[in-house]
Structures are given as C-alpha cells and as structure tokens.
C-alpha cells in the first residue's frame, strides 16, 4: 500500500469519527481505484472541473462517497479542512454527494443510476464531438440492478469507446446470488475487459489508461475494508463509525498494514 493510500485511509477514519457515520469497508475497498483515477488517469483539475471537454468521473456506488471526498480534498477540489464538517447539518459533504454543492458529476445514493448516466454522458460527448472520457465506478453488488445491464447493452451496441466501467469487485454479490463469470458476461455484452488487483495503483493506472476500441470494463479485485485488519474481518463495519476510543487502534492498524501478507482474492 502506498503512503498516499495509507494517509487517505486514516483521513477516512478521522472523518467518519467526526461525522459519526461511515461506509468504511466500501471506502477502503475503492480507495486505490479513486486515488489512481484522480492522481494518474483523469484529465481534470480543480481549474478545469467545469470545462465541457474534461474527463468525467461518475461514482455509481455511492457508498464510496467518503473516500471520493478524501481524494477530492487531497487534489484540491475542496478544502482539506472541510472534511471536518462531514455530515453536519449545513455541510456540503455527507455520506452521499450532492452535485449542486460539490464538484462531482452526479448526486448518487441509489444504486443502478450512475452507470446509465455515465453512458449518457459518453453519448453526449460523441454528439458534441468532445474528447473527454467518462469513467464510472460501480460495485459488484450493484451489478444486481437491471439498469446496469441495460446501460451495458446500450453502451456496447453504440460502441461508446470513451466509456470505462470499473467494477469494485469486493465479493459483495457472491453473498447474494451466484453471479457466475463476470468477465465472460461483460465480454458477451460487447465490452473489452481487464482484470486487475484493485489495490495495486500501477496495475490500475495501466488498465485504466489503455487504449480501447470498444467500451472498457475493468474488474478491480478488491477486499472490503482493505488496509485495516478489523474492517476486513468484522462485518459490522459495513455501516458504522469509529468511536473516539477506537480510533487510535484503527489508525495504528492502517499504519502497520502489510499488503504483502494480505493477498487479494
């Protein structure tokens, strides 16, 4: 795990403790994906966040909003200090983002909406002759939603090659139904695919920057709560926040985390 990824995870823990809410398992699962996008892939900066030709990032799996906020703050899209207002009554930031308050592409929250909206954005880019790419981060559990497959059908049928779908595949759906071979399904739908270690920034950057003639789906193999032994092992952390007395131990766990010993599935 990179130093940046460790710092961001600790930021998430502190933000959650202050705001008294959190989806930390999901945030930790998506962290490298989000960081790699904003650090190395997306052609967008705070100065070009309203540029019509920018690359667009759509967070479809809204449970990772907190991680997105930490990344946005680190990249200067919002003041670092503002993270301390997490979930307060009149704050701009909370468990789900509101695009009317923040430099994010969509207000998320309900699963199954972001990917079809991202496909619409990619379609608009083609109509208007823009170069910008569109990336959507979805959860593997979110792939239960029918609208996701509707969007995939449309995107492939239209050959929207500026669209990239990233599946944060942390094994959520396996608890629900047998999804079978996700990669084979996506290829059958007409997507180019890649499978990468979703906690390996180098591998993610390479897969997300690759040229593709058809729309691309990157299956990022991740672990819920990755970066904290407690969050990885204790299911209750799907939706809870660290109490003040729990925080030091959790921060220390992140610092001590040895990614070499925690093999990704």
């Amino acid at each position: 795990m990179t130093e940046a990824a460790k710092e961001l995870r600790k930021e998430l823990l502190r933000t959650s403790a202050l705001g008294r809410d959190g989806n930390l398992q999901s945030g930790f699962s998506s962290l490298e994906i989000l960081w790699t996008l904003y650090d190395r892939v997306l052609r967008v900066t705070p100065g070009t966040a309203a540029d019509p030709g920018r690359d667009r990032f759509v967070l479809s799996k809204g449970q990772s909003t907190e991680a997105l906020l930490a990344v946005l703050a680190r990249k200067g899209f919002l003041p670092q200090e503002e993270l301390k207002t997490f979930c307060q009554y009149d704050s701009r930031i909370a468990m789900q983002a509101d695009r009317t308050k923040l430099p994010v592409e969509i207000s998320a929250g309900s699963l199954g909406h972001g990917l079809p909206m991202a496909a619409g954005m990619a379609w608009a880019g083609r109509i208007l002759g823009r170069k910008g790419r569109v990336f959507a981060l979805v959860g593997d559990g979110e792939m239960n939603e029918g609208t996701m497959w509707e969007a995939l059908l449309f995107a492939a049928s239209e050959g929207l090659n500026r669209l990239t779908v990233i599946i944060d595949d942390n094994g959520s759906i396996g608890r629900l139904i047998d999804m079978g071979d996700m990669r084979a399904k996506l290829e059958a739908f007409g997507f180019e695919t890649a499978v990468v270690d979703g906690h390996d920034e180098e591998a993610l950057a390479e897969a997300l920057s690759a040229e593709h003639a058809r729309p691309l789906a990157v299956i990022a193999k991740t672990v819920r709560g990755y970066g904290s032994k407690t969050l990885m092992e204790d299911r209750s952390w799907f939706h809870r926040y660290p109490k003040e007395e729990e925080l030091p131990a959790l921060l220390a766990e992140v610092d001590a985390f040895d990614s070499g010993k925690e093999a990704v599935r």
């Binding site: 909406h113 909206m117 619409g120 954005m121 608009a124």
Partner: peptide, 12 residues
C-alpha cells in the same frame, strides 16, 4: 435506464 441515459446527456 433510458431516463438515466437522458440525464447523462443533459448533464453533459
């Protein structure tokens, strides 16, 4: 899904 696609068009 069509209404979501339409929203993506609109936002872009």
């Amino acid at each position: 899904g069509t209404v979501s696609l339409a929203a993506g068009l609109s936002l872009a």
